[in-house]
C-alpha cells in the first residue's frame, strides 16, 4: 500500500523565538529551521511500515515555498521514496493546506496518510483532522501505537485521562503523538542518495485549488514575562513561605 506523510518546515524546537519590534510577527531571520518533530515521527512510522513489508511506497509532501524542499530532502534521506512540494507562499493557513493535500491525495490515492499532531510554530493541531474531514476518511489523532491487520488499522491514541484504541477502515488518516516511535537520524550515505530521489513541484492551480484567507494576523506580542522569585535555603524555609507568604498550603 502507498503511504503519504506530510512534512512541515518549522523553527528548530531548541530555538526561543523573539517577536519583531513592529509586532507584525515573530522574527525568523537567520533562525535555524528543521522538520517539525511530529512530522519526523510520521516519517519514521511510514518507513517502519515499509521495512515491515506493509507499505510499498512512501511519499513525503510539504506545502510552502521552495525552502521546504530542504525538509523534503531530509524525509527522502530518512527513507521516503519520493517527495512533492506544493508551492505556496510561506505560512499557508491550515484549511488551505488541508485542501491542497486533499486534492493531491485524490490523485495519489494512498491508503494511509500520516501527519504530525501539531506544528510547533503555530501550535494549531488541526491540519490532519481537516484533511480527514475533506476526504471523508476516518481519523485517529494523537497516535501512540499503530498496527495493521488486513484493511483494518488499529490505533492507540493518547487522550486526556489515558489511552483509547480505535479501529479504522482504510483509507485512513493518523496524526502522530510523541510516544509513537523514536525517529532515526539520516546517515551520510542516505543523505547523498536522497539528492537523486525524485522531488516534484506542484502549484495550487495544477491541483485546482484557489487559496483564500480565513483569518488575519493582527499582531504578535511577547507574553508577559514571569519574574524569577527567590531561592530558599531549606525545606523549612520553603514550607514557611508557602504557608505564610503565598498562603497556598
Amino acid at each position: 500500500m502507498k503511504v503519504l506523510v506530510t512534512v512541515k518546515r518549522v523553527i528548530d524546537y531548541n530555538v526561543k523565538v523573539r517577536v519583531k519590534a513592529d509586532h507584525s510577527d515573530v522574527d525568523l531571520a537567520n533562525v535555524k529551521m528543521a522538520m517539525n518533530p511530529f512530522c519526523e515521527i510520521a516519517v519514521e512510522a511510514a518507513i517502519r511500515l515499509k521495512e515491515a513489508g506493509i507499505a510499498t511506497e512512501v511519499v513525503a509532501v510539504s506545502v510552502g515555498s521552495a525552502s521546504c524542499q530542504e525538509q523534503l530532502r531530509t524525509a527522502l534521506a530518512l527513507g521516503a521514496d519520493r517527495a512533492i512540494q506544493i508551492d505556496t507562499p510561506d505560512n499557508p493557513e491550515s484549511l488551505e493546506v488541508a485542501k491542497l493535500l486533499a486534492a493531491l491525495i485524490q490523485a495519489e490515492q494512498p491508503s494511509l496518510v500520516i501527519t504530525g499532531k501539531q506544528a510547533i510554530d503555530t501550535d494549531n493541531n488541526q491540519t490532519g483532522q481537516m484533511l480527514a474531514a475533506l476526504l471523508d476518511w476516518p481519523q485517529a489523532t494523537f497516535a501512540s501505537a499503530i498496527s495493521l491487520s488486513g484493511e483494518q488499522l488499529e490505533v492507540t491514541r493518547e487522550v486526556d485521562g489515558g489511552l483509547q484504541t480505535l479501529s479504522l477502515s482504510l483509507p485512513a488518516l493518523v496524526t502522530t503523538d510523541l510516544r509513537l516511535n523514536e525517529p532515526r537520524y539520516a546517515s551520510l550515505p542516505n543523505i547523498m542518495k536522497a539528492k537523486k530521489k525524485p522531488l516534484e513541484v506542484k502549484t495550487p492551480a495544477e491541483l485546482g485549488v484557489s487559496l483564500k484567507a480565513h483569518t488575519r494576523l493582527i499582531k504578535v506580542e511577547a507574553p508577559a514575562e514571569r519574574q524569577a522569585g527567590i531561592k530558599v535555603d531549606s525545606v523549612e524555609a520553603l514550607v514557611d513561605k508557602l504557608r505564610n507568604q503565598a498562603r497556598v498550603i
Binding site: V17, E93, V220, A222
Partner: peptide
C-alpha cells in the same frame, strides 16, 4: 478556519492565542 486554544476574547471576531510554545501571543481576526 478553526482558531485553536484561544486565551482571550477581544471582540466577537478577534481572539488571542499563544503560538511558538507560548513564546509569542498572536491576535487573530
Amino acid at each position: 478556519a478553526q482558531i485553536s486554544d484561544i486565551t482571550a476574547v477581544l471582540s466577537s471576531d478577534t481572539f488571542q492565542r499563544p503560538i511558538y510554545a507560548g513564546n509569542a501571543v498572536a491576535t487573530v481576526q
